[in-house]
Design a protein around this nucleic acid. Structure first.
Lengths: 218, 218
DNA sequence: AGGCAAATGCAACTCCACTTGCGTTAGGTG
DNA sequence: CACCTAACGCAAGTGGAGTTGCATTTGCCT
């Protein structure tokens, strides 16, 4: 299989790829079974240990079908992230901006501290290095995630914790500023991550926010 | 080859692995040729496209030797990063803290904007997902890099731009805070990176620094 | 219901990453 | 200078990921 540009994830542009024209019963069952098997394989062997054959055996779907519909391991993982993005997740609501951001940061810390929970997320980050579909899935996932988080800032403005809608704080930028140092330590410098790191990330972002660094004039 | 724990990068603990007991002429030449070939392969095909056989052909070193001494692609890439860490790089010295950090951030932006220059760096980040040796190499590389950067803060303190040695700013933390959002956009959210991003990262970090967020009491 | 095409199942094959056993070269040492 | 052994070269073999052509099943539509 040719790396770089694997493509063929179901749900794309629309030039008759398998799995898109017939969203009926079997196809849907196949997708569900496959994605369960992918998550299982990821938590069991990690991304580098995940093989198409494993997914085939644990899902009851034939190997050929997996290659045809998903193009390979990259596509399987990317599609699994799309599923994860469709959950009912909502940002924490603690009653204060500081509390919300702290809770958010701690959520990141704890989710990656648990190997089972961390496996799918880090798998897609790894897959994005190899395949464009995975990179797109990753981009879309976090864009949607951060969009949901902007409520945090809206509420803070309503409470008077941040300046009003005229010179508003860019919610997406603020949340990104909280998350960035955490992922940086996890996957770039590989320094490890604990709760004080979460607190520090929040403190830095909040200090910058109150200094007006995230302000977008309107 | 078994993933997870490939090991066998030259220069380790000392239980008689090939390439360590005889640092003579041929061995040294082999290492140099191999690392050149790895960089070439990385810039040409990227990490996912790099194969041991390619390195064998382009270095004149036999395939078997590569597997024996480096254990596989992961080890080759990790060893190459060790080489890169031994260069004469020094942080910018522009005469102001803001200028230094800006120059530093722009260096990151530009180095990853050029695909050829970006290939080796991002390759190791990707490799760290699969192999512990690569992760260690990555950790060591950035630790050493950030240690070199602490001069920036020392100079700023000497100039009076930051509070003195009593309640000093943690230089490593400040530099990390500048770098984190850049790598975050590059490899996690995959949003792309441009010069305004560099400026913004510096502004956030500086605002937090002046608010005392990086202060470590002594 | 019945027929058409999409989607999946199946088995055999290809190709390449990786291994293994042994012979050869060359660096260090007395 | 000669020996000894670490490090390297070589060629054949192995296993598994990924492919291919065809048979079979199952949605959807009239």
């Amino acid at each position: 299989m040719d790396n770089e540009q694997t493509a063929q994830v179901a749900g794309g542009t629309g030039t008759a790829r398998p799995g898109t024209r017939r969203p009926g019963g079997r196809t849907a069952r196949t997708r569900a079974a496959v994605r369960d098997a992918v998550v299982a394989g990821l938590t069991e062997h990690g991304y580098s240990g995940l093989t198409v054959e494993y997914v085939a055996e644990h899902s009851g779907v034939h190997k050929t079908t997996l290659y045809r519909r998903w193009g390979g391991v990259d596509g399987l993982v990317a599609d699994t992230l799309d599923l994860a993005g469709e959950d009912g997740w909502a940002p924490p609501d603690t009653g204060s901006l500081d509390g919300d951001l702290r809770a958010l940061a701690l959520e990141v810390v704890h989710s990656f501290a648990d190997p089972a929970a961390a496996a799918p997320s880090s798998a897609v980050i790894a897959a994005a290095f190899q395949s464009e579909p995975a990179a797109q899935a990753l981009r879309a996932y976090y864009a949607e995630r951060f969009a949901r988080c902007e409520v945090i800032v809206d509420r803070a403005v309503a409470r008077g914790e941040l300046p009003g809608p005229r010179s508003a704080v860019d919610g997406g930028a603020l949340v990104r500023a909280v998350a960035a140092p955490l992922f940086f330590r996890l996957f770039i410098t590989r320094e490890g991550l604990d709760e004080p790191d979460a607190d520090h990330a929040v403190a830095v972002a909040l200090a910058a926010a109150h200094a007006g660094t995230f302000t977008k004039e309107t």
